[in-house]
Amino acid sequence: MDSMDSSTDMNPRDRILEAVARLLTEGGREAVSTRAVSSAASVQIPTIYRQFGDMQGLLEAVTSQGYATYLASHLKGETDENPVEDLRRGWDVNVDFGLANPALYTLMYGNPRLGAPHPTAVKLQDVLLDRVRRVAESGRLSVSIERAADMLYAAGAGVVLVLIAQGGASHDRTLSVATREAVLAAITTDPHTESAHAPSPRSDATRYAVALKASLSQDARPFTTAERALFDEWLTRFIDTKL
């Protein structure tokens, strides 16, 4: 063991990750260098390379921890009976996490990963898709599940990165609320206001098609695999032509 490593009982890997998280919080990505990490974690520089290979490997490990913490925050709390409210809550969790951890969030979402997405990021996307699917099954989704999830993801990450650039937690969050409601208005329908807004038969048909497709993805027992695939293709084509 390196002589510097004996200063604490915590294993070197955990000390290094903890040090990087602290440096990110205090000074952003620019504060994370091998020398700074070595000093903050009380390890010698070769220990960092033995544990993580290089700086990119170290940042990947920190990003993995960030995704895991972020996923846990999304899984807290009970599911709301109103699936649209669940989308609102998920949006707000995203904003709160990003503004509480600006450097980490920027590391996670400000530098898109080329190729295969991070495994935990895939789990987060599955959580979002499940929430959007509940809206579809309730008959309130006016676009495809995949399109709605992409819109929420893109707008949510974009808002947080803009707020971080504009001052983070100290900035007025009305931008987040306004963007959230604009996206929800674009992808959902409100059954309490439909009569006032008099939706067209086309928007109704799209909403019903989305709901039917979502239901079939959960239970398609009356159909064979081939019939289900064909029905899914027809519904997808119909929905896409209405977007």
Rank of each mutant, 00 (worst) to 15 (best):
L216N: 02
R147C: 01
F97S: 00
A211T: 01
T188W: 08
Y105M: 04
R147Q: 08
Y70K: 07
S170A: 14
E26K: 11
N111Q: 12
V37M: 02
F231I: 06
P199Y: 15
A21C: 07
S217V: 01
A169I: 14
W91P: 00
A209I: 02
A72G: 01
D172T: 02
S170G: 02
I239V: 06
D92I: 02
A229C: 00
V95T: 04
A205W: 13
E233G: 00
T8I: 01
G27V: 05
D150H: 09
V32I: 07
S215F: 07
T241K: 11
G57R: 09
N101C: 08
S38Y: 03
A178L: 13
V160P: 04
V20G: 06
T225D: 15
Q166W: 04
P46W: 09
L114S: 12
L129G: 00
V127E: 09
G98P: 05
S42N: 13
P102G: 03
N94H: 14
D232T: 09
R173N: 04
H171S: 08
D80F: 06
E78W: 06
M151H: 05
A185L: 14
V127P: 01
S215T: 04
G98L: 10
A186H: 14
V32L: 05
D5N: 12
E146W: 04
G28N: 04
Y208G: 00
A178N: 06
G115K: 10
A186I: 08
T69G: 01
D126L: 08
D54P: 01
E194A: 15
S203L: 15
W91M: 00
Y49C: 02
P102N: 07
R22T: 11
M55H: 06
A121D: 11
T193W: 15
Q51R: 12
M1N: 09
A61W: 13
P102I: 06
L129E: 02
E227G: 02
I48K: 05
H192C: 04
S64P: 00
R13V: 05
V132A: 02
V132M: 02
T224D: 13
R22G: 09
M4R: 15
G57H: 12
R173Q: 12
H118F: 11
R131G: 04
S39Y: 06
A198Q: 15
A214T: 01
E137T: 10
D204N: 08
S142L: 10
A72C: 03
G66R: 09
Q125S: 09
Q166N: 09
R173A: 05
S33W: 02
S38H: 03
T34L: 05
G53E: 04
A220R: 10
A198W: 14
I16G: 03
T8W: 14
T189F: 10
A154M: 08
T47P: 09
A155C: 06
L212V: 03
F97H: 01
E146K: 07
R15V: 03
G57F: 07
R202Y: 10
G115M: 11
A229V: 01
T193E: 14
L114D: 10
E85C: 06
A100R: 14
D80S: 13
W91C: 00
L141Y: 14
I48E: 03
R134E: 11
A61N: 11
F231G: 00
A61Y: 13
I16Q: 02
R22V: 10
I48L: 10
Q44P: 00
A155D: 03
T206I: 11
P201R: 12
H192A: 15
S3K: 14
A165W: 05
L212A: 06
Q218Y: 10
R89W: 09
I239A: 08
A103F: 07
S7D: 06
